[in-house]
């Protein structure tokens, strides 16, 4: 994405559809000195294998077995195989939620077993499908150790400050995600002492930016969260939930949504509802995948490489 592509006046549907032409295409995405750029995968990919990097996967929906993907366990396994095959072991893996489809113990068990085999530290945030039982305790008991509130937390790695946010507990009337007062206060305090040159990576399930209001693809108080991050020169926001790659840059903030490891969803507004999208046999893996994020140095590029399972 060049600076010219950046929509600074707001977000409109045409812009989303334009971005959507990238869905299913592997690409490198980088922020250098506050100027965001992206290039199609190719020569740039090699340049991002050095230095600190981590992997993002999302929306595994373990337990889902409908025609859009009858075997979500197998496709998660395949995504993890791709992670294991990456050149240079990633520092850790982030899962941006909807680990399970129905928050069932057996679904969480499978998730822990599969992701455990990756032998990587896993940082997760819950999706709305992970907190359907016991007020979210079945998620927190397994993945929320050491977190605050409904499962939010922060940590430092590779010179980057990482912040995991939870925006799926009190979905708003129009379906939008919500962080809530308590979490926002915590966030404000969490970043207060950090220097403005610290690269920030925020990850949460529902997009923090408004992707498509009619389907609740956005976070009602996301703008307030981002206002606390204004002083930082490099902010990267990683989300899931919408099962497709969308990217947007606003000033020094770069937004990115990841593919699902389970099934694709339609582009905003192109279907009656945001249900699982059945794709022709043999094409599913072009719509599923993993994202790898690299920090070449703390001064410059953060690069994201999206890789479909069928790449």
């Amino acid at each position: 994405m060049t600076r010219d592509d950046t929509n600074r006046s707001g977000t409109d549907r045409r812009h989303f559809l334009k971005c959507m032409t990238w869905a299913g295409t592997a690409m490198v995405w980088s922020v250098a000195g506050g100027i965001p750029r992206s290039r199609l995968i190719g020569s740039a990919e090699a340049a991002t294998t050095a230095g600190f990097n981590f992997v993002q996967i999302s929306d595994s929906h373990l337990g889902f077995d409908k025609p859009a993907n009858p075997n979500t366990t197998a496709t998660l396994q395949e995504a993890l195989n791709d992670v294991a095959a990456l050149p240079g072991a990633p520092a850790f893996m982030i899962h941006t939620g909807d680990i399970t489809h129905l928050s069932k113990p057996a679904q969480f068990d499978t998730a822990q077993q599969l992701m455990g085999q990756a032998k990587l530290t896993i940082h997760t945030v819950p999706g709305e499908h992970d907190i359907l039982e016991e007020d979210g305790k079945s998620y927190l008991n397994r993945f929320g150790k050491g977190t605050k509130g409904d499962g939010w937390y922060s940590f430092n790695a590779g010179g980057v400050h990482f912040i995991g946010l939870v925006n799926v507990v009190n979905l708003k009337g129009n379906g939008l995600g919500d962080l809530g007062h308590e979490q926002l206060e915590w966030l404000e305090g969490d970043v207060k002492g950090l220097s403005a040159s610290t690269p920030i990576v925020v990850f949460a399930h529902v997009p923090l930016w408004l992707v498509y209001q009619d389907w609740g693809w956005g976070t009602a108080d996301g703008a307030q969260a981002l206002s606390y991050l204004k002083k930082f020169g490099s902010v990267t926001v990683l989300n899931g939930h919408i099962h497709q790659v969308l990217q947007k840059v606003e000033g020094h903030v770069a937004f990115h949504t990841a593919r699902s490891t389970a099934f694709p969803q339609p582009a905003p507004g192109t279907a009656k509802g945001p249900g699982p999208m059945a794709v022709p046999a043999g094409e599913l893996k072009q719509y599923l995948g993993i994202a790898r994020v690299s920090l070449v140095s703390s001064q410059a590029p953060l690069a994201i490489v999206d890789t479909p399972l069928a790449a």
Binding site: H129, L132, L171, K172, G173, G175, D214, W215, G216, P274
Partner: peptide, 9 residues
């Protein structure tokens, strides 16, 4: 009423 998972419904 709404759908708890998709309150836009």
């Amino acid at each position: 009423y709404v759908c708890g998972l998709h309150p836009f419904m």
